[in-house]
Amino acid sequence: MAEFLKIKQELIDAVSELDEEKVTELTETALRDGTEPLDILEAVNEGMLTVGRLYESKTYFIADLIMAGLIFKEVLGLEQMTELFHARNKNKIGKVVLGTVQGDLHDIGKDIFRGLMETNSFEVIDLGVDIPKEAFIRKVIEHKPDILGMSGVLTYTIDAMKDVVGALDEAGVRDQLKVIAGGNHLTRENCAYIGADAYANDAFDGVKICLEWVKEKKNQGEL
């Protein structure tokens, strides 16, 4: 443990500098030395927070977020870390059902969002791409998520998104969750048209909104 304190800052820096090889090497060394996986995960999360700040200050761009996501996935892929991650599943801060809406087959934005949400301790049920409204409703009823995330790259996806919200209404579950729409083309106006609670032009903004929602819900004593 004392050993880990020495390399902790190094690990945080390696994550924030997106040095994949160094992150893996430091993590493996720490695990071999008997460091608690939880401590490692905390250091990695701290590095991820720096990545987020660098993205907000426009030092990092989307490619860097993709890289950060890959590093996070790689660390979690290490055997002892996977066990921890699964154990921590019980302590998730919120549940999200996510998918790219019908008529659109793009997944990069959705995948970056999923990665960032998982980093932030959300449980994400990813339905994939080209998801019809019926499938969204079925999964919402089955998983009872706190948040429904709809992704779309193509301009016309606003209609498919509006249909999903309409179907939530019809199924009588609209008031049981928050709805966020994600896509580069979205604006306040078409978010109102869709009937979503919020929209995000990039994955990072989306995560911030979801974190706010969970905080509000917690403050209201619902979680």
């Binding site: 997106l18 994949e20 993709i66 890289m67």
Partner: peptide, 11 residues
């Protein structure tokens, strides 16, 4: 594909 080329820029 995009995620892989991003990885290649580093590796």
């Amino acid at each position: 594909d995009i995620p892989n080329v991003v990885l290649d820029l580093r590796k």
